[in-house]
Design a protein around this nucleic acid. Sequence first.
DNA 1: GTCTATATCCAGATAGAC
DNA 2: GTCTATCTGGATATAGAC
Lengths: 203, 203
Amino acid sequence: MKLTDSTTESSILEAAKHVFVLKGFEGARMQEIADEAGINKALLHYYFRSKDKLFEAVFIDAFVKFVPTILITLNSNSPLFRKIEVFVDHYIEVLSKNPFIPGFILHELSHNSERLSKIIRTVGLNPDQFSEQVLAEINAGNINPIDPRELLVNILALCIFPFAGKPILKIVLFKNNEEEYAEFLNKRKHAAAQFIINSIKKR
Amino acid sequence: MKLTDSTTESSILEAAKHVFVLKGFEGARMQEIADEAGINKALLHYYFRSKDKLFEAVFIDAFVKFVPTILITLNSNSPLFRKIEVFVDHYIEVLSKNPFIPGFILHELSHNSERLSKIIRTVGLNPDQFSEQVLAEINAGNINPIDPRELLVNILALCIFPFAGKPILKIVLFKNNEEEYAEFLNKRKHAAAQFIINSIKKR
DNA sequence: GTCTATATCCAGATAGAC
DNA sequence: GTCTATCTGGATATAGAC
């Protein structure tokens, strides 16, 4: 978009992303972002007019990076079971490297749905192709009948919830042990896919 | 706890709960809580010393009301399949009446895990009895092998995610139509339980 | 472009009358 | 207990020198 992709601008964006994702819009402080970017507050306002604008840039970036790929993968041409395996494995892997993104997106979306919903629509998420595929498999007698939207929500829930709910799950299941939780997530790449396929597979 | 359960105190708590749950700790304003309770800011500080204290009262109340019942139900004596059906139906029903609670608890827990994790431990959540039951069913050859913790997380994920992710799901799946989403959640009480049971049931 | 200094605003908290 | 008025700190944002 900009030709002058100065180091400053990108380091601001990087710092802002870090702070906003961790603290949320309301909890984030411009001072902290400035510190983390190694500059001062005034420069933040020079590059981005306001906290609002800076946040919007960060949110759009995170949203576009993490959400549409969901449907791109699910709308691909792979056979259904393989698609589910690949998706779950890939998405849990990505989220393991960005564990705070789900909570960030869900929270900000809940609290600014008016302002941010236009972003969602701009991206143009469409689950129709996935739905068609599911219905075709049902008609062919390969899987048990299920509302494709239910299946889609289930897949997303099983991937995302372990991250959004990490703080409490880690305590309840693993006495707050970080390594064990990481191992749990790793096993889950396979286990969650298997759980889904087991449920819909005709036997 | 207090003998003088004045109307004022309870109306403050009610207003505070409403505002905190909707806006989060950082987003909430004492002024808004005072307005909603029909009093002024000074009285808030008279009853609860600070915003922090008021928040803690609200959070504990919400947490104790919504989280431990999860495990009480799952640790009951019902047979596994019936237990899952009852739990899913009951929990989706409860959350339908308090749709913002999941996001509230998950978000605040993520951002104050140090301060709030003692609350979690105080409540004493223990999934062991549920785990035992699952393992017993596996050994008896009634269900397919599965890590009980995976199963627990899956059940919670399928119930909670549709609420935490409501803003985006409503747009992607139903073009933002509220009634259709409510109907989706209603069908889900049965569909989600069936999805789980299908997956673990030996056939 | 980058800084220091400052303006402006607003939220949490307190003082003190009633 | 409840109010009005006020203090105080901190956060966003701007002015203006370099």
